[in-house]
Design a protein around this nucleic acid. Structure first.
Length: 147
DNA sequence: GCCAACGTTGGC
DNA sequence: GCCAACGTTGGC
């Protein structure tokens, strides 16, 4: 899961109550569907810093809730407000994310240099999704690099 | 700031 | 349903 560290960094997440943050602001259907349909409590997450000087994997986290509506979609004062969403028919769902560990920064160039990660979805050319699945092999490889 | 890539919007 | 225009993402 990508986060801009100027917005929410791994340190911010670890400093939050219960080391947990609601993953607000996702406004892409595919990314929403991963949270709404594919994630389960306790699933492992890679916490990726994007749109920053040194993009890369900065920590580990886990899914900490079932999916529920993103409240910011209903708030006209929020930059994530969606006028087409209603309480009765919410459009945007999220999960809570519990940060478990800050790791060394596994940088984007390092990820790209690893043949075992060549097909990783987040690294694919043109990928703009802020949430992408990780295969078990990719997960093991990355945990190994961080260990 | 640039720009490739691609998702969304809206007219038809 | 098509598709051009536009907006956003995100690395560089």
């Amino acid at each position: 899961m990508k986060s801009e560290p100027d917005d929410v960094s791994i340190d911010d997440a670890l400093a939050a109550p219960g080391q947990t943050v609601a993953w607000i602001g996702v406004r892409n259907y595919q990314a929403r569907n991963f949270m709404r349909d594919a994630m389960r409590m306790g699933d492992g997450l890679l916490f990726y810093h994007s749109s920053c000087a040194e993009p890369g994997i900065a920590g580990l986290a886990e899914v900490a809730s079932a999916p529920y509506p993103d409240d910011t979609q209903f708030d006209p004062a929020s930059k994530y407000f969606d006028p087409k969403a209603t309480r009765e028919n919410p459009r945007w769902m999220l999960v809570d994310v519990r940060a478990t560990k800050k790791t060394r920064l596994l940088t984007l160039p390092e990820l790209r240099a690893n043949p075992a990660l060549a097909d990783m979805q987040v690294l694919r050319r043109g990928n703009r999704l802020s949430i992408t699945p990780v295969t078990p092999d990719e997960w093991r490889c990355i945990i190994g690099q961080l260990g």
